[in-house]
């Protein structure tokens, strides 16, 4: 038992050390966002002599519209994508995990196949398509695909989680006369909270960070999102305001970090703590 007690501080020390190494770049970015812009690359390391907050105010207003617009746009987009993914992917996943329908293996194969083609050859025909319906410069080309379960990653993730749930639960429900909609809504969904939380967190973060599709579809600066705006600070052909860039990078991480902090609480409330059956 004494070795146990000793092991805990050692464990913590190890975790803290690993944590520092992992966080070093993040800490450096925060430190640099508080330095005067022209000193960033001339004084390496984490130590700052004096605090300079002007990168934050300058960065916020460096582009027109100001940074608040981009945060708001990203928030709207993220919300749409989360709702879309949660509803459509969980439905599709239920079908693949619990229903025995004809051609299931084929459909599943096709679903996985859709994530194997690189985006760069899909984007041009897809842009042509959406441009013809007049959806360019709206959030529709970014949200509608999510509502239509095109994110096979999450379908597959949820399939794996549902298959991990004891089958006796829905067998029992079926004997009680429950149909699939009720089994799905009242038994499976509550039990797969960790998977839903994971989907929410990931959709949030990936949408928040996704640059390429947002760059292509959003053309008007009033519609720009955070990642598109953040890159507008950086142009290799001219001098870059790295101070503003880092400051706004820090600002843009805060929402996803908060989302993660809140979301991870639901990760813990799986079957393990609610007691299972």
């Amino acid at each position: 038992m004494t070795t146990r007690r000793l092991a805990t501080p050692v464990k913590h020390l190890g975790l803290v050390l690993i944590g520092f190494v992992m966080l070093y770049p993040v800490l450096w970015m925060i430190a640099s966002s508080l330095r005067p812009g022209d000193e960033i690359f001339r004084s390496p390391g984490l130590i700052i002599d004096s605090l300079h907050a002007e990168n934050y105010t300058e960065g916020w207003y460096a582009l027109s519209p100001s940074f608040g617009t981009y945060l708001l746009n990203s928030a709207v987009l993220v919300l749409g994508c989360i709702v879309g993914n949660l509803v459509s992917c969980s439905m599709a996943a239920y079908a693949f995990a619990r229903l025995n329908f004809s051609g299931k293996r084929w459909w599943f194969g096709i679903m996985l196949g859709t994530i194997m083609l690189p985006i760069h050859v899909i984007i041009v025909p897809q842009y042509v398509l959406f441009s013809n319906i007049g959806w360019v410069n709206t959030f529709l080309p970014l949200i509608v695909p999510k509502i239509l379960a095109t994110d096979a990653f999450f379908v597959f993730l949820m399939v794996q989680f549902i298959r991990g749930l004891p089958k006796e639960l829905d067998e029992a429900a079926r004997i009680d006369g429950c149909g699939h909609p009720r089994i799905f809504a009242q038994i499976i969904l509550p039990l797969m909270k960790p998977a839903l939380a994971t989907t929410t967190i990931f959709t949030f973060i990936w949408t928040w960070n996704d640059f390429f599709t947002q760059l292509i579809y959003l053309t008007d600066p009033d519609m720009y999102t955070v990642p598109v705006a953040l890159r507008s600070f950086v142009d290799s052909t001219v001098a870059t305001s790295w101070g503003s860039q880092f400051a706004m990078s820090v600002v843009s991480i805060i929402p996803i970090f908060l989302a993660f902090l809140i979301g991870q609480r639901y990760l813990v409330k799986g079957i393990a703590t609610t007691g299972g059956k």
């Binding site: 975790l15 690993i18 944590g19 992992m22 966080l23 070093y24 770049p25 993040v26 450096w28 970015m29 390496p44 973060i205 960070n209 996704d210 640059f211 990642p227 953040l230 890159r231 950086v234 790295w242 860039q245 880092f246 990078s249 991480i253 996803i256 970090f257 993660f260 902090l261 991870q264 609480r265």
Partner: peptide
């Protein structure tokens, strides 16, 4: 919760444009 968040933080930055500079710092 603290450790989980600390270990996850780098992944939040994973595809950011700042990564190029940050990686040079390492």
């Amino acid at each position: 919760a603290f450790y989980r968040s600390a270990f996850y933080l780098p992944s939040l930055l994973g595809s950011s444009v700042a990564i190029a500079v940050l990686w040079t710092q390492v």
